[in-house]
Design a protein around this nucleic acid. Structure first.
Lengths: 163, 163
DNA sequence: ACACTGACTTAGGACAACAGAAGTTAGCTA
DNA sequence: TAGCTAACTTCTGTTGTCCTAAGTCAGTGT
């Protein structure tokens, strides 16, 4: 029972504008499927080869092939040939910068699952290498404040607030 | 072309464990559909009534009904009766604490869309009420460090690092 | 009593996302 | 040259996500 965001300026009331250009909607066009999310998770875990993706995510070959292909098309993964001695050329799927930049979103979702859905506590934990402290996805403003949900407002970019 | 997380302890190598209990997978069971995400976005924008959800998200009535019902079942939204004078009793859908706690994940996804998918720049901006500075989803460790992607490791909870 | 409206539900059908099983192909190794 | 294997592709079928169009139903308001 939390209150909603405060809509400011031209965004208030909600009925006065539409969300056609919504970036969330655009992001979901790229990664709205379960398999896409999970394949990305695997990529963050360091998986690179086709068979490993399919078996570790627990998805069938055709789905793995289709999703990986699309993630490459969308620029989240890069398909790179590599060669181990005595082996033939294979292909590795690696995160591009665009794909890697999705990590905060993955962590946020994963930790929401930890908090609300995992009975036995989190199965794995993301930590900071240097200090070994656990890492969380948090909302923070550019001045450095931690921001709670009640302290947020939605604005049209560039629009200044009438104080 | 970023490197992956470093897997530590029992989590290394990746082939030594499975991700059956993965919290990300559990979270996706609840909100993997486009419509679920977008309805939650609307709830954060303050939308409460059925028709408004359907029209603002741009989804048909049956889909709105099915998704809203499921989000209530899963405990992300609460369906509350309310009554305006001279009107009959209606129902409002409001975020529960569990639902509201998904906000960082939504913001992270939205901002990824802003950065990589929106040609004309972000259509809306989340700001801190007090200082009007823009708000971002960031990874931070409990000691307060900002954490870049290369500085992360994955551990089994409770497991101490051999330094 | 009747129309009206907001909040749904039902029916019918398209299409996307999956599974499982069985090919196919390229290039190494024997 | 034949076999082996990783990386796919093809086939078939199910379930899930969406659409449009048309109903239902409960309270107001006239």
């Amino acid at each position: 029972m939390t209150e909603a965001l405060e809509l400011t300026g031209a965004l208030n009331p909600r009925s006065a504008w539409d969300a056609e250009r919504c970036s969330l909607a655009k992001a979901l066009e790229v990664v709205s499927t379960r398999s896409a999310f999970l394949l990305l998770r695997e990529a963050f875990y360091g998986t690179e080869r086709f068979d490993d993706f399919a078996s570790r995510v627990g998805v069938s070959d055709p789905v793995a092939a289709a999703r990986l292909k699309q993630l490459v098309e969308d620029g989240l993964l890069v398909r790179e040939p590599y060669r181990e001695p005595g082996q033939r050329t294979r292909y590795a799927y690696r995160l591009s910068d665009k794909g890697a930049d999705l990590f905060p979103a993955l962590v946020a979702l994963m930790q929401w699952g930890d908090r609300w859905l995992a009975e036995d506590g989190p199965p794995v934990e993301v930590r900071h290498k240097r200090c070994a402290a656990t890492v969380h996805a948090e909302l923070r403003c550019e001045c450095g404040h931690d921001v709670a949900l009640g302290e947020l407002e939605l604005a049209r970019p560039g629009a200044r607030r009438r104080s």
